[in-house]
Nucleic acid binder design. Structure first.
Lengths: 161, 161
DNA sequence: GGCATATACTTCGTTTATCGTATTATACGA
DNA sequence: TCGTATAATACGATAAACGAAGTATATGCC
């Protein structure tokens, strides 16, 4: 068993940086987190439905509708009915939306460049391997491993008043 | 120059996991992110003022007041006027609050344990070293390096209507 | 073919958090 | 003691999230 506590101590203070990325990513974005990731998803898939969007951002369709509303109004996405199935709404990026994503990605990679700037090639390789491992662990154990602990039960749904 | 693009490709899809931790941390917490980190801060400092809280969560005092309101109402913190300076409000954890933090930390370390479970001691060491480096880079360059790029300017404050 | 049911979304109203501005209370320096 | 700075709260506006109800379209079944 590794020395977990040491690691815990090490990262405890920096957990906040992970959960509040907005504090070190000091960009005054005009879109919310959900909107940005929606744009990224549309960019990646080229076309998505409202249901796909809702699933991606882990929200009900009513929330997705709100996001699509705002992005459409801003002119960054185009919302159209599918011809094949007229119940379905298809979202695509507008030209402006695509441009914006290009800029976002450039800016993002600039940020990454700064963060990893003096890591050696070996460190970078290892970092990727480690991240991969961690992601695999998380996925393999998600929701499982943790449900049988006492601690976990205590944390869930304690009603006070 | 390292191969940044490869790294970018590698982590792009997982960026969402960082920005939406709630999707893999599947605990139905009764507190919001801001409230949890407020509790953690109070636990760490033992006693804090409203101003310190506001600074920590990067919000105006009016927001901090709302958080303190909710945490006080839930019975997890105690809000008292300082005797030395009666303008100052001091926040402390109640017994229930302390208990809750203990559980949170146990649960957190359980999570970490799962994530790093099959990393070797060397990997763990290196991971910590790399994280440290990255944090230093971030702090050294925060807000600076990125402000002179064209991209960045494009991203900031574009008004549409 | 027609009717019941399912699917894909939107609308609407409620709730909640955030935050700017105004206000209150206290401290402190000249 | 008066003016100003500081610490925090109160209030009102805004925005996002969401559940429930509603609308339109598709599909299965007789």
């Amino acid at each position: 068993m590794l020395d977990i506590n040491r690691f815990l101590d090490f990262i405890f203070d920096d957990l906040k940086k992970i959960f509040f990325p907005e504090e070190w990513i000091d960009v005054d974005l005009k879109f919310s987190k959900a909107e940005i990731f929606s744009l990224l998803l549309i960019d990646k898939r080229h076309e998505i439905t409202m249901s796909e969007l809702a699933e991606y951002i882990h929200s009900p369709l009513s929330t997705a509708t709100g996001i699509a509303d705002r992005l459409t109004k801003s002119g960054y996405i185009i919302r159209e009915r599918s011809e094949a199935d007229r119940r379905i709404v298809v979202l695509r990026l507008s030209h402006e939306g695509s441009q914006w994503i290009v800029h976002l990605k450039e800016w993002l990679s600039g940020y990454l460049r700064v963060i990893v700037q003096d890591l050696t090639e070996e460190e970078l390789q290892l970092l990727m391997a480690i991240i991969l491992k961690m992601i695999r662990n998380l996925e393999a154990n998600s929701g499982k491993k943790l449900h049988d602990s006492q601690t976990d039960v205590t944390l869930r749904s304690i009603d006070i008043d």
